[in-house]
Design a protein around this nucleic acid. Structure first.
Lengths: 119, 119
DNA sequence: CTTACATATGAATACATGTTCATATATAAT
DNA sequence: ATTATATATGAACATGTATTCATATGTAAG
């Protein structure tokens, strides 16, 4: 196998035209990367469960820990990940932090995913 | 910290009522798990790019390798992952395998995700 | 001012995962 | 038949990641 690592595209594409047009109509790399990042964050069972629970109503860390069946510490770690991706937001009431979905798109993504999963 | 690992839920929930109702309205564990699995599969930049390219038209392994900028071998591995999750299907034409999205839900999921990413 | 509690966070460990490399299979061409 | 090509696959390695544990922060209560 002596394919050169660079310019693989130019030389080894089978349908250069299709590749060129596909490339032209694709979202920019940054967008694809951020999209992947969002899906990756949603792609952990614990976090999916958390988001799924928050579809109904806001919940505090402890309650989410109950629902997910893991320690509050683990939930807190995961909530930070979700926060960093702008998937959840929270409000503080005393020492209790109530988390909720950050915007309506999140529910749409979940719903679309469920349609595929539930066939 | 002397919290028992079992029955954490019963003892340490702050709002038992909210937790109970959230639990009742949540999808079964199996569904949540499969949903997470779908998102996890979509959560890799290479696979997101592949799916994104296939939104336009079917493409063969080599062309996808060009678009993703990785080896055909790596693409083939990823295509198997996507196949296992029923996200893509393929038809053979001679020795060339043309891949396409398996159903319309996939596009919906991508679109919903893009709305969040593009704000 | 302590004490208790809800949450957050850093470090460490155990586990999963994506790519590469080598090789296999299958189909077309010579 | 032999060679070239398109794809598939197994093993290995390197990297990433989710949980746990220990600890820190901040808030309410005694």
């Amino acid at each position: 196998m002596t394919k050169r690592k660079d310019d693989v595209c130019e030389v080894f594409c089978i349908n250069e035209g299709k590749v060129a047009s596909a490339r032209a109509s694709m979202k920019p790399d940054g967008t694809v990367f951020r999209l992947a990042a969002v899906f990756k964050v949603l792609g952990d069972p614990t976090r999916t469960r958390i988001i799924s629970a928050l579809l109904q109503e806001e919940l505090c860390v402890c309650d989410l820990a109950c629902l997910a069946g893991i320690s509050p510490s683990a939930v807190s770690h995961q909530l930070r990940v979700l926060r960093n991706m702008n998937l959840v937001k929270y409000r503080k009431e005393g020492r209790i932090a109530y988390y909720s979905l950050d915007d309506d798109h999140i529910a749409s993504i979940l719903t679309a995913g469920l349609k595929h999963v539930e066939e």
